[in-house]
């Protein structure tokens, strides 16, 4: 590797590491973290499971949309006032619906969603066992015929 190239790759990796470091800084809100470590952990866990409806593939912990920051503030305040996790989830769902949760609850509208992987896996096993059974019935003699055909 030439010296110039080395320098470029050094610069690129240096720039990348700086960029990765700033990622931590972006997520900070004006509200200070909770003093209680377990409360802070619960808060972080929860905001990492709530969808930001503006940038739908981001959680509100990831998103810097104004609505995400508003929701973080609201959740932070509720939890600071002693609201439990189910209470905060109920607060969000009653306003935005199940879609706001990355882990939607199991009920009449979501059973297909939760059941599909199980169903597909069972279906896969069914096909697999049928193929296996069919193969086991095949007489071994067929392979010898194939051998004779090769010169």
């Amino acid at each position: 590797m030439s010296r110039a190239r080395q320098l470029i790759s050094f610069r690129a990796s240096f720039g990348l590491s700086i960029l990765l470091l700033t990622g931590i800084v972006w997520a900070i809100d004006p509200t200070p973290p909770f003093d209680d470590a377990s409360l802070e952990k619960n808060y972080q866990e929860l905001i990492n499971e709530v969808r930001c409806l503006v940038c739908q593939n981001q959680t509100i912990a990831d998103s810097n949309a104004p609505l995400a920051s508003d929701l973080r503030r609201e959740i932070h305040q509720m939890m600071g006032d002693g609201a439990s996790r189910p209470e905060v989830v109920e607060f969000l769902v009653s306003r935005y619906g199940d879609f706001v949760l990355y882990r939607p609850p199991f009920h009449s509208k979501t059973w297909v969603l939760w059941g599909a992987p199980v169903f597909l896996l069972a279906f896969g096993f069914l096909i697999f066992s049928r193929i296996l059974k069919a193969r086991m019935k095949q007489p071994l003699g067929e392979y010898e015929v194939l051998d004779e055909m090769t010169p």
Partner: peptide
């Protein structure tokens, strides 16, 4: 101004 009422109404866009 701070968007609290909007959250109560489930406003997102």
């Amino acid at each position: 101004e701070i968007g609290d009422t909007a959250i109560d109404w489930g406003v997102y866009g």
